[in-house]
Amino acid sequence: MPDHGYVWAAVGLSFAITWLLRALPFAVLAPLRDSAVVAHLGPRLPVGAMLVLAVYTVRDVEPSSALAVGAGLAATVGLHLWRRNAMLSVLGGTAVHVALLSALG
């Protein structure tokens, strides 16, 4: 079991670095908020950021669980296009994935 002082230091560093990365860019961008480039990028970044993160979460998928991931994705997207209920889509997609994973595993 690691020493408490060490873990607290790791937590403190992670806290400080994460917060600075989230806060400092606003100071840099504040004068640019009315610029045409920021106005162009602003509304378009969210969809890209979420897509990139979704791909990132499946970066280590093994071939053996590819089917479970594919089916989970299809269920999530299908449910969301059909009912537009985020909780249902996340719950349904995860349920399909977990069920297939344990059935095939």
Binding site: P43, R44, P46, V47, M50, L51, L53, A54, T57, V58, S65, A68, V69, G72, L73, T76, V77, H80, L81, A86, S89, V90, G93, T94, H97, V98, L101, S102, G105
Partner: peptide, 24 residues
Amino acid sequence: AGLEFTLTALFVVLALDAHRTRRD
């Protein structure tokens, strides 16, 4: 096993919702 897929599903849902706000 596989519960971490929740995060994947969440990001997919958030991407779809972001796309719906601005169909591009």
